[in-house]
Every structure is written in structure tokens, then in C-alpha cells.
Simulated scan of single mutants.
Amino acid sequence: MKAILNDPAGAVIGLDFDGTLSPIVPDPAEAVIHPEAPEVLAALGDHVRAVAIVTGRPAATALELGPGLAGVPGLVVLGHYGFERWEGGRISAPPPPPGVPRAEAELPLLLDSLGLSEVSVEDKHRAVAVHTRRAPDPEGALAALREPLAKLAEKHGLVVEPGRMVLELRPPGMDKGQALSLFLAERAARSVMFVGDDLGDLAAFEAVRASGLPGVTVCSGSAEVTALAERADLVVDGPDGVVELLGELVAAFGRL
């Protein structure tokens, strides 16, 4: 943290979206960014080298769920774990992988065969997610899905990304760690902070440590996932704690 405070112009601040900037909700389509987050990120963007949101969501979805994010100075949104990029109002991405719609087409029959009609499927365009949060037994449904979804993913050349009451089928070849590493090199960062809440953020934590830069990892804490908190330099209390921490950074920069 000292390196970020001493040289904010060299710092890259990376953040997950769901569970970090936005509270987790039963229906992902109803997620909304913390009301104070856009303002504090905009203030942060005035001081640091770059602010990057690194999310499994499509970049456009993160922006829709985060009104005001498009006005954050220098903001980059790396969507779909880094396969997709939003910057300066434009999205760039490779063509969608054909395995995703094929796997999604098979999901209704698979879920029906497992008696899991109350789980929900989220079409993320370049990925498809199966959420169990609204099932009568969320943990049981998640356990029942792990092996069948692994087989379905393998059949269509995909990988399974586990998360908080969700299993996501997505293309291989990119994760949040790779996305963050590439971004740090691109921006010639001199220090880095990454804030996340879920298992998919572990790769970004490892990227911070592997970068060789002064860095800090922050966990947006929850009772659902403990693996991240165990590896974080700092644990805060959910999105409220994240916004409070970022606000403290902005205040500290203002005193320099």
C-alpha cells in the first residue's frame, strides 16, 4: 500500500464487479453497483495510472449495471475474464466461441434429468452460467452439477469456472490473472492493487504476487467464500468495505 500512496500515478487499481463493487443478489440480472462506487472510482481515476474492472460479466453488462462507470477517467473494463475489452466507449473482442451456445442448448435437458428445474441459467454470450442460489438446497444442487457440467464443458471445448453458488462454462485460454498481467505490462505499472471476492479472483491475486511489483490484494469478504480471505493482504466487509477503502485512498491522495 505504501508504494501506491507514494506514487499514485504509477498505480493500477483492478477490481472485480459482482460481490466487490456490487452486492451479490439471487438474480444476477438484478445486480446493481454500490451507489457510491462510480463517484469514488472517478475520484480514484484522477490520481492513479488506471482503474480496471476485471469481470466474468460481459463488459457491456457491467456498464449497464453500473451507471456512471463510463465517466470514470481512464476506466478499462476487461469482460469475460479478459477476452473482451471496453475502453473509451468501444468494445473489442474475438468472435464468440461456438461451444458456448451448443452447451447452453443441452442444459435444459441436463437440468431436467437431474431434477434441478429451480436453478437458473444465465446467457453471458461468451459463456453460460448455472446459478443455484434460488434452489431449495443451493449447496446440494451445486454438488450435483459439478460432474455433469464438467463433462458437458469438456464435450464442447470449454472449462468450468466455479463461483459463489454458480458454475460457469467458458472458453479456455484466459483468466483474470492473465488479463491483469497483460494490463499491468501494457500500462507499465509501478504498483498494483486488486480487489475481489470469489474463487475466480484467486488468479488475479497470484498475478499481483507474480508481477514483481509492490502490490496489495484485497478481499471483499463474505461467509460464502473463505479461500480468498485466507490469501488476501487485507479483508474488508463486502462492497461497503470496498467503497470505504477506496474512499480512504482518495482522501490520502488528496493530502499528498
Rank of each mutant, 00 (worst) to 15 (best):
G74L: 04
G74Q: 01
G74M: 05
L75I: 10
L75A: 02
L75M: 02
L75C: 00
L75T: 04
V76E: 05
V76K: 04
V76Q: 05
V77N: 00
V77K: 03
V77I: 07
V77P: 00
V77E: 00
L78D: 00
G79L: 02
G79R: 02
G79S: 00
H80I: 03
H80T: 07
H80P: 00
Y81M: 05
Y81A: 07
Y81E: 11
Y81T: 04
G82K: 00
G82T: 03
G82M: 01
F83Q: 10
F83M: 11
F83Y: 09
F83S: 09
F83H: 08
E84D: 05
E84W: 05
E84F: 01
E84R: 00
R85I: 02
R85Q: 07
R85N: 05
R85W: 05
W86F: 09
W86D: 06
E87F: 15
G88Y: 08
G88F: 05
G88R: 12
G88P: 11
G89S: 14
G89M: 14
G89N: 13
R90A: 15
I91Y: 08
I91L: 12
I91G: 10
I91C: 10
S92T: 15
S92H: 14
S92F: 10
S92V: 15
S92K: 05
A93F: 10
A93N: 12
A93I: 08
A93Q: 14
A93R: 14
A93W: 10
P94H: 10
P94A: 12
P95I: 13
P95D: 14
P95T: 14
P95G: 15
P95A: 15
P96H: 14
P96V: 11
P96L: 11
P97Y: 10
P97E: 15
P97G: 10
P97D: 15
P97L: 10
P97I: 06
P97N: 11
P97K: 10
P98L: 12
P98C: 09
P98W: 09
P98T: 08
P98K: 12
G99Q: 07
G99V: 07
G99P: 08
G99N: 11
G99W: 09
V100S: 07
V100C: 06
V100M: 07
V100W: 04
V100Y: 09
P101N: 11
R102S: 13
R102E: 15
R102Y: 06
R102Q: 15
R102V: 14
R102M: 14
A103S: 11
A103K: 04
A103F: 08
E104V: 05
E104S: 12
A105S: 11
A105R: 13
A105K: 13
A105C: 06
A105D: 09
A105W: 07
A105G: 09
E106D: 13
E106P: 04
E106T: 06
E106A: 13
E106N: 06
L107T: 02
L107F: 01
L107H: 02
L107Q: 00
L107E: 03
P108N: 00
P108L: 01
P108D: 03
P108V: 01
